[in-house]
Design a protein around this nucleic acid. Structure first.
Length: 326
DNA sequence: AAAGAGGAACTCA
DNA sequence: TGAGTTCCTCTTT
């Protein structure tokens, strides 16, 4: 791959397809996935300046920034199918400060392998996150398919992810197709302060939708997802139950361990760490803006009689137990 | 004060 | 009719 050119001969991508790097949030729990640690290539190898490894996995980060780098342009096998963001980066990668020897053939092969691994990893993580959000919000992965209600859900979700003040109100009665036809300038017009973040986040979703068409879903599936995916396949039209929703959060500890986590997975004992946040996520999922922990916990208590959830033998605040742990 | 428990009426698919 | 949702009162932590 030629690192210095604005385009990429492997993919046909152009420098008009910028990489959105989301800077790490300071919360140490929101770190790069553990499983990715052993395949992190050094940034110097990528022709990027050394810094703490940036995430490309949006739920863990609260700020979007555009970073130009041709290696990441390989994220998509084809150029983005829709109008790209207007803030086009300068062509060519950032150069290391020290002059370097020309890379040997072996260096080139190692580099190629690392890039390949990074590419696979990034694509997988982005698609997994979009998939998770789709399940939680009950919306289609492709923004073009969204109704106005779906757009509102996605906006609430984006507010939550990036800790934005209320922005959903400025996009009333906007369908997914309308949203996709808007330029970055349109977004800025709707929200001068956060329009660029919303536009960047939407661009990730649109790129993910384009990628999904080219990547087999197996690439993005983890063992944790399998049982739940089976449930979704078997009962595609069933509304999600609260216990299913809680399980879905629990099987995504990278994303949600700060609001809910297993105490003892084998016994099905879990703890709600942030009751307000879990309630808010449930409210978004069910389109119930007034949802709070008082109501959510009442619904959990309904499960006592049904034998789905109970309090553990040693009762603790915000700790519950699935009667039949999977 | 926040969480827990449970009754009762209500909505919605 | 089932699965919550909403509101309520009272108890426990």
């Amino acid at each position: 791959m030629s690192m210095g050119s604005p385009g990429c001969e492997h993919t046909g991508c152009t420098a008009h397809s910028p990489l959105y790097i989301i800077q790490p949030h300071t919360d140490a729990r929101m770190a790069w996935p553990d499983e990715a640690e052993d395949i992190k290539p050094p940034r110097s190898l990528l022709g990027l300046p050394e810094l703490s490894w940036p995430g490309v996995f949006f739920p863990r980060y609260d700020r979007l920034a555009v970073e130009e780098s041709s290696w990441m342009l390989r994220m998509t096998e084809t150029p983005a199918p829709v109008a790209p963001p207007s803030r086009t980066p300068e062509p060519g990668p950032a150069k290391p400060s020290q002059p370097q020897e020309p890379p040997s053939e072996m260096d080139g092969q190692v580099e190629e392998r690392c890039l390949e691994q990074v590419h696979t990893m990034v694509v997988g993580e982005v698609l997994k996150d979009v998939d998770t959000a789709c399940k939680l919000l009950n919306i289609a992965p492709d923004p073009l398919d969204w109704s106005c209600v779906h757009v509102q859900k996605w906006l609430l979700w984006t507010e939550h992810l990036y800790r934005l003040p209320q922005v959903s109100t400025v996009f009333q009665e906007v369908s997914g197709r309308d949203l996709c036809s808007m330029t970055e300038a349109d977004f800025r017009q709707h929200s001068s302060q956060f329009g660029d973040i919303l536009y960047a986040h939407l661009d990730i979703w649109r790129s993910a939708a384009a990628m999904k068409e080219h990547c087999p879903p197996e690439d993005t599936k983890s063992a944790d997802d399998d049982s739940w995916s089976d449930v979704k396949r078997n009962y595609p039209s069933q509304p999600i139950h609260l216990w299913q929703f809680l399980r879905e959060l629990l099987v995504k500890p990278h994303n949600y361990s700060r609001c809910i986590r297993w105490i003892n997975r084998e016994k099905g004992i879990f703890k709600i760490e942030d009751s307000a946040l879990v309630a808010r996520l449930w409210g978004i999922r069910k389109n119930r803006p007034a949802m709070n922990y008082d109501k959510l916990s009442r619904s959990i208590r309904q499960y006592y009689k049904k034998g789905i959830i109970r309090k553990p033998d040693v009762s603790r605040r915000l700790v519950y137990q699935f009667v039949n742990p999977v």
